[in-house]
Simulated scan of single mutants.
Amino acid sequence: MLSDEDVLAAVRRRAEERGGAGPASPASPGEATVTRHLLIEGRVLRSLETRTEEERFHQGFVDLSDRPVYGFALDSYRVPPPEDPAVETTLRLVRRGSVDDRSCECGNGVVSCERCRGTGELPCAPAKACGGCQGVASCLWCDGTGRRSRTYGRPDAGQQGRVGRVTCGQCGTANSACADCGGRGRTTCARCGGSGSRACSDCDRAGTVPHRRCGGTARTVTWTEGVVTRSPFDVKVKIASPDLPYGAWKSARDHGAWTDVRVVGPRSSLARDTDAEVAGTLEPWLVRHEGEVARRVTLRHLSLARVTLASDPHRVFFVVPGHNGPHVAAWPSGNRVRLIAAVALAALVTLVVVTRLLA
Rank of each mutant, 00 (worst) to 15 (best):
T50Y: 02
D101H: 12
R95W: 01
P68D: 08
E55W: 03
L64I: 03
E41R: 15
L48N: 05
Y70E: 02
R46T: 06
R78Y: 06
T89N: 08
E83K: 15
S98R: 02
E55A: 13
C104G: 08
P80A: 13
V79N: 08
R96S: 14
E53P: 00
G97E: 12
E41A: 14
T89S: 15
S103H: 13
L45P: 03
E41M: 13
E54V: 00
L48W: 06
L91N: 04
Y77V: 02
E88G: 13
V44R: 05
G107P: 04
E105D: 09
L93F: 03
S98K: 04
D101E: 09
V62E: 14
R46D: 02
L74I: 01
F57L: 12
Y70F: 15
E88I: 01
V110T: 15
R43T: 15
G42K: 12
F61I: 03
L64T: 02
V110E: 14
V99R: 12
T50L: 11
G60H: 09
V44G: 09
R95E: 14
S98H: 04
V79G: 07
G107E: 04
E41D: 11
D66K: 03
R92M: 08
P68M: 10
E53T: 01
N108C: 11
L45G: 05
R92P: 00
D63L: 13
T89W: 02
L91Q: 11
R51G: 01
H58G: 02
D66T: 11
D75W: 02
L48S: 05
D63I: 07
E88P: 13
Q59H: 05
D84M: 08
A86M: 06
T90G: 09
S47R: 15
P85G: 07
T90A: 13
S65A: 15
L74S: 00
G109T: 06
R46K: 13
S65F: 08
D84E: 10
T89C: 05
Q59M: 14
R43N: 09
G109S: 07
G107Y: 02
S103D: 07
V69Q: 13
P82F: 04
R67T: 01
R67A: 14
C106S: 08
E41T: 12
D101K: 06
D75N: 07
I40P: 06
G107D: 04
D63R: 11
Y77I: 00
L64E: 07
V94Q: 06
G71P: 01
P85D: 02
R102H: 13
V87Q: 14
L91D: 02
V110A: 11
P82H: 08
L91V: 05
S98P: 01
R46P: 01
D101Y: 12
P80L: 07
V69H: 04
V87F: 03
R96W: 05
V44Y: 10
E54H: 01
V62W: 07
L45R: 12
R96M: 08
E54Q: 11
C106D: 03
D100K: 13
P85Q: 09
D66W: 07
T90M: 13
I40G: 12
A73R: 13
V99N: 06
R96T: 05
C106P: 04
D84K: 15
P81L: 11
E83D: 10
S65Y: 06
Q59S: 10
D84V: 04
H58M: 04
Y77F: 15
A73W: 12
R96P: 00
S47N: 10
R95S: 01
D100E: 12
P85E: 03
V110G: 01
